Simulated scan of single mutants.
Amino acid sequence: MMGLYQGPRLLDFAKTPSHLQFNKYVLTGYRPVSTAQECLRSLFYMHNELGNIYSHGIPFFLFLVLLPFSIPWMEVDNVWICIVHYLACLSPTIGSVVYHVFMNHVGGEHVYDTLLSLDMFGVCLVNTLGAIPIIYITLLCYPTVQQTALLAYILLSAYGIYCATTARTNILRLRAFVWQGLFRFSLFLFRVYGSGVGSPNSLRLFVIMDSLAVLGGVVNIIQIPERFSPGLFDNWGNSHQIMHVMVICAIIYLHWGTLEDLAWIKSYQCPTE
């Protein structure tokens, strides 16, 4: 596939535009400034963003086609939960693919910042939409609290989206998701120590989901393994690609956990007072 198109001469780190110099340990393989058509052609030759494109592009199409077959649409009273969950699983991958394909567009830093905001918006959506079924089911027996918690989480997520899409560094972007993470963690504690409900098997899956997401973000920030061997991981195996794989794994665990809850809710009845 990589031989279908003869790509342009690639650039070294020092010769690429300054807004693309965000990982000084990736030394080679940078695409030159390109038109939209040229950016699309870069899908078919080797460069240092190809792994980032396909590590989210392939899962996007797999999720798009395969996930609907595993979601129990007809078995759930509130089908909107299934729709929200499906959109949550898709949201981080599509924004990421668009960002990585067109990040070297001739529009320069303005276009780059817009694409990065789109990428961050997708990450915020999986945090927001992915948690809504968890909130709904955890607080199933407390309708008033449930509605308040859903509204609070949406407002909190709106603030997180603003912070993530305007942040200028990876550390600030990761911090934008902290409050959402703490909110979900409080729900997990409510399931364990309070009166929150849900499948006995889903909580472990959700904890693994969040752990993978956090670990991926940390790996991306500290830029390992390329930090220890600059140039060796330019095309494959660098920190951003590792983060991409961890994000996909986190989405899979989110999906498994949500399916456990959706199967559980079919037969659960809240206790009567």
Rank of each mutant, 00 (worst) to 15 (best):
residue 224 I to R: 05
residue 253 Y to G: 04
residue 220 N to G: 14
residue 178 V to D: 01
residue 174 L to Y: 11
residue 219 V to L: 10
residue 173 R to Y: 12
residue 193 Y to W: 12
residue 223 Q to H: 05
residue 226 E to L: 10
residue 217 G to R: 06
residue 217 G to N: 06
residue 223 Q to T: 06
residue 191 R to L: 09
residue 151 L to K: 07
residue 155 L to P: 04
residue 174 L to E: 13
residue 180 Q to H: 02
residue 242 I to H: 05
residue 244 H to F: 02
residue 236 W to R: 09
residue 163 C to M: 12
residue 257 G to M: 03
residue 178 V to F: 14
residue 242 I to W: 02
residue 226 E to I: 03
residue 262 L to R: 03
residue 234 D to H: 11
residue 164 A to I: 11
residue 242 I to F: 08
residue 218 V to Y: 04
residue 246 M to W: 08
residue 152 A to K: 01
residue 171 I to Y: 11
residue 245 V to T: 14
residue 237 G to M: 14
residue 229 S to Q: 03
residue 258 T to C: 07
residue 167 A to Q: 14
residue 152 A to L: 06
residue 177 F to M: 06
residue 168 R to G: 15
residue 245 V to G: 09
residue 255 H to F: 12
residue 232 L to T: 09
residue 243 M to P: 09
residue 153 Y to I: 10
residue 144 T to V: 14
residue 248 I to N: 15
residue 170 N to L: 12
residue 245 V to M: 11
residue 268 Y to Q: 01
residue 245 V to K: 09
residue 172 L to A: 14
residue 191 R to G: 10
residue 213 A to E: 04
residue 215 L to P: 00
residue 241 Q to K: 08
residue 223 Q to D: 06
residue 200 P to K: 00
residue 219 V to Q: 01
residue 244 H to G: 05
residue 171 I to L: 13
residue 198 G to M: 06
residue 229 S to G: 02
residue 200 P to Q: 09
residue 202 S to M: 09
residue 144 T to C: 04
residue 155 L to T: 12
residue 240 H to N: 11
residue 215 L to D: 00
residue 259 L to D: 00
residue 170 N to K: 15
residue 159 Y to H: 07
residue 224 I to T: 10
residue 148 T to Y: 02
residue 214 V to W: 00
residue 143 P to H: 04
residue 179 W to Q: 14
residue 244 H to T: 07
residue 174 L to D: 11
residue 169 T to D: 08
residue 262 L to E: 00
residue 269 Q to W: 00
residue 156 L to G: 12
residue 151 L to H: 05
residue 214 V to A: 08
residue 236 W to L: 15
residue 180 Q to T: 07
residue 208 I to M: 09
residue 166 T to L: 03
residue 241 Q to E: 10
residue 205 L to C: 12
residue 170 N to D: 14
residue 256 W to L: 13
residue 162 Y to P: 02
residue 248 I to E: 13
residue 179 W to A: 15
residue 176 A to Q: 02
residue 248 I to W: 10
residue 203 L to Q: 08
residue 144 T to H: 13
residue 160 G to S: 13
residue 249 C to M: 05
residue 240 H to E: 07
residue 188 F to T: 11
residue 259 L to S: 00
residue 222 I to R: 06
residue 210 D to L: 09
residue 173 R to P: 11
residue 163 C to V: 11
residue 203 L to P: 07
residue 152 A to F: 06
residue 254 L to A: 12
residue 249 C to T: 01
residue 174 L to F: 15
residue 194 G to M: 04
residue 245 V to R: 09
residue 158 A to M: 14
residue 200 P to T: 08
residue 167 A to C: 15
residue 259 L to G: 00
residue 190 F to G: 03
residue 232 L to P: 03
residue 262 L to W: 01
residue 251 I to Y: 03
residue 250 A to R: 05
residue 200 P to I: 05
residue 186 S to A: 14
residue 224 I to P: 00
residue 179 W to F: 15
residue 189 L to I: 01
residue 233 F to Q: 01
residue 212 L to W: 04
residue 155 L to G: 13
residue 245 V to P: 05
residue 221 I to Y: 07
residue 258 T to R: 06
residue 218 V to M: 06
residue 219 V to C: 10
residue 203 L to G: 05
residue 180 Q to M: 14
residue 168 R to V: 12
residue 234 D to F: 08
residue 242 I to G: 03
residue 157 S to H: 10
residue 204 R to C: 02
residue 166 T to F: 06
residue 143 P to A: 07
residue 141 C to I: 00
residue 194 G to E: 04
residue 198 G to D: 07
residue 257 G to V: 02
residue 247 V to I: 13
residue 237 G to P: 10
residue 242 I to E: 00
residue 249 C to R: 01
